[in-house]
Amino acid sequence: MIRYPLFKKPVKVGVTSPSSGLHLEQHSLLEEAVYRMEGKGYRFKIGQTCWTQYKARSAPAKTRADELNYMLQDDSIQLIFPPWGGELLVEVLEFIDFDNIKSKWVLGYSDISVLLLAMTLKTGIATAHGPNLIDLRGQTSDPTTAMWEKVLSTKDGEEIIQYPSEMYQLRWQHEYVTDWVYHLTEPTKWKTIKNTPIYIKGRLLGGCIDVIRHLIGTPYGDVGQFQQKYINNDPIIWYLENCDLTVPDLRRSLIQMKLAGWFEHCSGILFGRSTANETVNDYHILDVYMELAEELNLPIAYDIDCGHMPPQLTFINGAYAEVRIYNTNGNMIKQVFKC
């Protein structure tokens, strides 16, 4: 059965950097995010890894893992909320004490999705793919981003519905500060192959495909065992977002997932928006989606609110979900905290 952590205020947040930390000139970003959340009643335990960054990582792998293990086993911490992602979280997996993790939320995206997916697959504890802590440093949050609190506050057996954002951010403009950090300028439209309406059900799994693909063939990426042990062989709905992969590399990664059995007993795939999906030698991102849909005989949606072109929904790995996309009105994703 899937275990959903409790989220009851006042919440103590553990902040650690299992991937990248912050250079000195970036410290104010974390300090501002903590200040904003403390104003809403959150309490914090901030680890030492947050304040350092050297050679594409916050600290050596064992140091990062030790701090993460401490927070995963600390009963007083209800939420682990890294500042942001990075590049090399995969280095810490072999040092994580998965057998002694206490049931608590871990929230983030990008490189953090390696930890999220591995933790849910290994332990059956639900994890949350949504904003990073740094994203909450604004005076307020847009309605889509702000849903992370309501989603994490959902109790066993309850459901939560999220809808498409009204606008999304086309590019980062850090030099122009807004009340909610992002610059939401482009109309959001969730799309499907050939504009065919879809209605799918299943258990959510996913993350940043650039990094979660490296779990394939490891003890941390056994999707088949997860389905048998924790979700009674329910079908999976994959949500995937591409940060930096070229279109051909994305195609190769999806084929690897298929050959590894990750798409077996799958009910559909949701792809997030991406700036990386540039056409290569007349090979278009839509070619990738259409080829995959035909090969797997699965419904595929794309340009979903997920990933590095915010805002994004909060997806719960392991939760039961119903996804409706009609290409008009009525688009939604309902998540049920079903064991």
Results as ranks from 00 to 15, higher is better:
residue 268 G to L: 09
residue 270 L to S: 10
residue 271 F to M: 13
residue 271 F to R: 09
residue 271 F to E: 08
residue 271 F to S: 14
residue 271 F to Y: 11
residue 272 G to K: 01
residue 272 G to M: 01
residue 272 G to V: 02
residue 273 R to D: 01
residue 273 R to P: 00
residue 275 T to Q: 09
residue 276 A to N: 05
residue 276 A to S: 10
residue 277 N to K: 12
residue 277 N to C: 11
residue 279 T to H: 04
residue 279 T to K: 12
residue 280 V to L: 13
residue 281 N to A: 09
residue 283 Y to L: 06
residue 283 Y to C: 08
residue 284 H to G: 10
residue 284 H to L: 04
residue 285 I to E: 03
residue 285 I to V: 13
residue 287 D to F: 00
residue 289 Y to R: 06
residue 289 Y to P: 01
residue 289 Y to Q: 05
residue 290 M to I: 08
residue 290 M to D: 04
residue 291 E to V: 06
residue 292 L to Y: 02
residue 292 L to N: 07
residue 293 A to K: 06
residue 293 A to P: 08
residue 294 E to L: 07
residue 295 E to R: 06
residue 295 E to F: 06
residue 295 E to L: 07
residue 296 L to P: 04
residue 301 A to K: 02
residue 302 Y to W: 14
residue 302 Y to M: 13
residue 302 Y to V: 14
residue 302 Y to Q: 02
residue 304 I to Q: 04
residue 304 I to M: 09
residue 306 C to M: 13
residue 306 C to E: 06
residue 306 C to D: 10
residue 307 G to A: 05
residue 308 H to K: 08
residue 309 M to H: 02
residue 309 M to C: 07
residue 310 P to Y: 02
residue 310 P to W: 02
residue 310 P to E: 11
residue 313 L to C: 09
residue 314 T to F: 13
residue 314 T to P: 07
residue 315 F to V: 05
residue 315 F to P: 05
residue 315 F to S: 06
residue 316 I to T: 13
residue 316 I to Q: 10
residue 316 I to W: 08
residue 318 G to E: 09
residue 318 G to A: 03
residue 318 G to Y: 07
residue 318 G to D: 11
residue 318 G to L: 11
residue 318 G to S: 02
residue 319 A to P: 07
residue 320 Y to N: 04
residue 321 A to F: 11
residue 322 E to L: 08
residue 322 E to I: 09
residue 323 V to F: 12
residue 323 V to Q: 12
residue 323 V to S: 05
residue 324 R to F: 11
residue 324 R to H: 03
residue 325 I to A: 13
residue 326 Y to E: 06
residue 327 N to F: 03
residue 327 N to E: 04
residue 328 T to L: 08
residue 329 N to V: 09
residue 329 N to D: 03
residue 329 N to I: 02
residue 330 G to L: 03
residue 331 N to G: 05
residue 331 N to F: 02
residue 331 N to T: 10
residue 331 N to E: 01
residue 331 N to I: 00
residue 332 M to N: 07
residue 332 M to T: 00
residue 333 I to Y: 00
residue 334 K to I: 15
residue 334 K to D: 10
residue 334 K to T: 15
residue 337 F to C: 00
residue 338 K to H: 08
